[in-house]
Amino acid sequence: MRIEVMIDRSKKLPNGAIPALEQELKRRLDSRYDETCSLTIRRVGSDGLFVFGANDDTKKDIEELLQETWESADDWFF
């Protein structure tokens, strides 16, 4: 399964936010899914999420996981 997270480059983010998000999201994905996940996070023109090689239910679960991870940044980003 391949996951690509795109974050709008015009959004202000603290230094180190992208690597920290990638590490935390990868940790959560690995604990939830047995299959190998390839995760890419990059800054682009607009926000987006693409999940390749997964069914619709899994895509929805990953979307929710990303939202939970982002909203809990106070717990893992320091």
Rank of each mutant, 00 (worst) to 15 (best):
K60T: 13
W76C: 00
D30H: 08
A73E: 07
D30G: 09
L49H: 02
S31V: 06
R42Q: 12
E35C: 10
D75E: 10
L29W: 05
D30S: 13
D61F: 11
S10I: 04
Y33G: 12
Q23D: 09
L21I: 02
M1I: 08
G45Y: 03
K60G: 00
M6G: 03
F50D: 12
R9T: 05
I7L: 11
E4Q: 12
D61Q: 13
K26Q: 15
L65R: 06
T40K: 10
F52Q: 04
K59R: 14
R28I: 01
E68I: 06
D56Y: 02
D56I: 14
P19S: 07
S72E: 14
F52A: 07
R32E: 13
R42T: 14
V51G: 07
V51H: 08
R32W: 01
Y33H: 12
E24W: 05
Q23G: 00
L65P: 08
C37R: 05
A17L: 12
V44L: 01
T36D: 11
D75N: 08
R32A: 12
L29C: 00
R32D: 04
S38N: 13
K12S: 11
D34T: 15
L21W: 02
S10M: 09
T36E: 15
K12F: 02
R43D: 06
K59Y: 05
R43W: 00
D57L: 11
E4C: 00
R43Y: 01
S46A: 13
N55K: 04
L39A: 09
L13W: 10
M6N: 09
D8F: 03
F77D: 06
V51S: 11
E68K: 15
S31G: 15
K12C: 10
D74R: 12
D74C: 07
L65D: 10
A20P: 06
R32T: 15
K60L: 13
A17S: 13
S31R: 14
I62F: 11
G48I: 00
G45N: 08
I3K: 02
A20Q: 06
F50T: 12
S31D: 10
L65V: 07
A54P: 10
R42D: 00
S38P: 02
N15E: 11
S46C: 09
R43H: 03
T36L: 12
Q23A: 14
T69R: 10
T36H: 12
L65G: 05
F50N: 12
I41A: 02
V44F: 01
I18C: 02
M1D: 04
S10W: 09
T58A: 15
P14C: 03
R42H: 06
I7G: 08
T40D: 02
K60E: 13
T36N: 12
E71W: 08
S10G: 07
D56S: 11
L25N: 01
G53V: 08
E35H: 11
I3V: 15
